[in-house]
Design a protein around this nucleic acid. Structure first.
Length: 298
DNA sequence: GCACAAATTTGTCGTAAAAC
DNA sequence: GTTTTACGACAAATTTGTGC
């Protein structure tokens, strides 16, 4: 269009690369995605992270302030949640389904993996929502598999390609950063949600959930310990082989040094013999010279 | 420790503008 | 012209500070 970008009310739109980079960054910085740092000066740390992110995203498209990127992230989350809610509604809809809801995009799935899905489809522990979704089913709460769909295809949602190295809610039983946060502080209630009293879990359920989460963390720790043990074994064996190499090298060096010493000793011996021969020759020359002088004096 | 108010954060919705 | 996105307004929830 002919409108001046500088004077226009709205900034230029983000590029897909910027969205992808933003989501990628969030997947690796859960504390930023959840907006909470568990350390002193947490807000300052968050602000610094946003500034870092803003400068990073600057390379992929139009420049924005940290406030604008916060809005972009907020809208991304909101949109992803809305899309998942639509999908869920469509999957539960009865009658003539004239309007098909398109599946989630890669970006939306990543966003949902980062933020968790409870706020989009409701808390499965509350039956009034009646959502037999594939995310966090009774399997987690009772340890029993549900009768609902078991494959992603059956659930009308493709498997989530979660962030690398991050245990996402959709990939494991561990809660996402958002849900971990929600264990400490109750999730924000949307205007469409039922009253708090209905949503509130019982203490027993809370404890049960906490135990399950701790078990998950424990399993994660155990697998980490195994990895560490394997790494230590690998390290020690490589150190041993290095030591072996060093030992064999030292043996060679010692042999060479011994040979050198032997040669040096032989050289010393020959030098001493030469000196002795030279001394004897000098002594004989001096004797002949003295004889010559005596003969001349006579 | 509790109650209250103010400040801050976060999610939703509607609308204008950019992009197609 | 339609779709998508940025952004402001608003509401709800949380956090923080203060007084008792």
């Amino acid at each position: 269009m002919s409108t001046n970008k500088e004077e226009s009310k709205k900034t230029r739109r983000c590029t897909p690369a910027q969205h992808a980079e933003l989501v990628d960054y969030m997947s690796n910085h859960s504390e930023l995605a959840s907006g909470r740092f568990n350390c002193p000066m947490g807000n300052a740390a968050i602000e610094r992270q946003w500034e870092v992110l803003a400068s990073l995203l600057e390379e992929f498209g139009p420049k924005k302030t940290t406030a604008q990127w916060k809005t972009v992230w907020r809208d991304l989350k909101s949109k992803a949640r809305a899309r998942l809610a639509d999908l869920n509604r469509a999957s539960k809809a009865t009658g003539n389904k004239s309007k098909a809801v398109p599946p989630l995009t890669e970006l939306e799935r990543k966003v949902l993996a980062i933020i968790g899905t409870v706020c989009s489809i409701g808390d499965p522990s509350t039956s009034e929502r009646g959502l037999n979704t594939w995310v966090e089913t009774e399997e987690q709460h009772n340890g029993e598999p549900t009768a609902g769909p078991s494959t992603p295809e059956e659930r009308n949602v493709e498997p989530v390609a979660g962030p690398s190295g991050v245990s996402t809610h959709l990939k494991s039983n561990l809660p996402s950063p958002f849900e971990r946060e929600s264990l400490r502080t109750p999730a924000r209630r949307s205007s469409a949600d039922p009253p708090i009293a209905k949503r509130r879990r019982t203490d027993v359920q809370e404890l049960d959930d906490a135990v399950k989460i701790f078990k998950g963390i424990q399993e994660d720790n155990n697998s980490s310990y195994k990895e560490i043990a394997t790494s230590i074994n690998n390290l020690s064996s490589s150190l041993a082989s290095n030591q072996e190499m060093q030992t064999s090298n030292i043996s060679q060096l010692v042999a060479v040094q011994q040979e050198a010493n032997r040669l040096q000793a032989e050289a010393n011996r020959l030098t001493k013999e030469a000196i002795d021969v030279q001394r004897e020759q000098t002594r004989q020359i001096m004797a002949l010279f003295a004889q010559f002088i005596n003969d001349r004096g006579d």
